[in-house]
């Protein structure tokens, strides 16, 4: 009972914003972040060796001696291919930097939220790299989310899929404004408070409007994949995020707030 009361009190003071608990998060993040990074790198190494070597052992058993050299080269090739893929991803991010304007830093995701229902990830950069709270996180495809807890070397990023996330958007074609919220489950987004949903149609692209004072204007958020019948005041609209959240590895973090960006087509 005492512990439940303590938790209730803790939740209450955070809701009223009377007590800042971020120091607890930062302390835990800084303490556990290095372990996560080491394990992440270890898994990468094991994965590379597995895909490049052990997974091929069965196929080469008959001619093991003849193919020993071949295996070694395959291992080398697999590692280089993995490096090349990573390099290509990083190059795409680096190419994108000039069009964003302002300072950016490339970071790597090292883990996801350990609590089900919460859509957050941990990245391996923090305030030492210039990241601050509410820094925008993006990829070449579009917006990933924003930082909500920043430690010295690690940060927690709230994905736009999270149920606490809300992003101001503008429909590219009709210029209607609204708010895009995360559903907390699955990889879909939900439209809320749109000016007028009569003109919304399948295939429409939603961009950040910049009105939330967090995300700069002009970044891609997602696409309308389904427009259903009206339920209550609004139509049933399903949004697919621009970013493939299942394949996130490296992301770009904006360390300087800029009012507007123009990537690809002008919004």
């Amino acid at each position: 009972m005492i512990l439940l009361a303590v938790h209730t009190l803790l939740l209450s003071v955070q809701t009223n914003r009377r007590f800042d608990t971020s120091f607890v998060r930062v302390w835990l993040l800084e303490s556990l972040g290095p372990i996560e990074r080491v394990v992440d790198l270890g898994i990468d190494g094991i994965g590379g060796v597995w895909h490049g070597y052990f997974a091929l052992i069965g196929e080469h058993r008959e001619n093991l001696k003849l193919h020993q050299e071949n295996d070694a080269m395959r291992l080398e090739l697999a590692t280089r291919q993995e490096d090349a893929l990573e390099l290509a991803r990083l190059r795409k991010l680096m190419d994108m930097r000039p069009s964003i304007g302002g300072n950016t830093v490339v970071t790597r995701i090292i883990s996801r939220s350990p609590a089900s229902g919460s859509q957050t990830v941990t990245i391996d950069k923090g305030s030492r790299s210039g990241i601050v709270k509410d820094s925008t996180i993006l990829t070449t495809e579009g917006v990933v989310g924003r930082t909500i807890t920043v430690g010295n070397d690690y940060s927690i990023v709230q994905l736009i899929l999270d149920s606490q996330s809300a992003v101001g958007f503008i429909v590219r074609s009709s210029r209607k404004l609204g708010i895009l919220k995360g559903t907390g489950a699955g990889s879909e987004l939900a439209l809320e408070y749109i000016d007028d949903d009569n003109e919304i149609k399948q295939g429409d692209e939603l961009l950040t409007s910049g009105q939330d004072q967090i995300y700069p204007k002009g970044l891609s958020l997602g696409f309308v994949v389904y427009v259903g019948p009206r339920q209550g005041n609004f139509k049933t609209v399903r949004i697919r995020p621009s970013v493939n959240f299942g394949k996130l590895e490296e992301v770009l973090c904006m360390t300087e707030r800029v009012p507007e960006v123009s990537i690809g087509q002008a919004p």
Binding site: L3, T8, L10, L11, Q14, L29, P114, A115, T122, I156
Partner: peptide, 22 residues
């Protein structure tokens, strides 16, 4: 375990703490 989860998940401290305690 709940408090550690909350801290690393970025949700208000006590959310999973309360639940896991119960």
């Amino acid at each position: 375990v709940g408090i550690i989860q909350d801290a690393l998940a970025g949700v208000p401290l006590g959310t999973n703490g309360f639940s896991k305690t119960l």
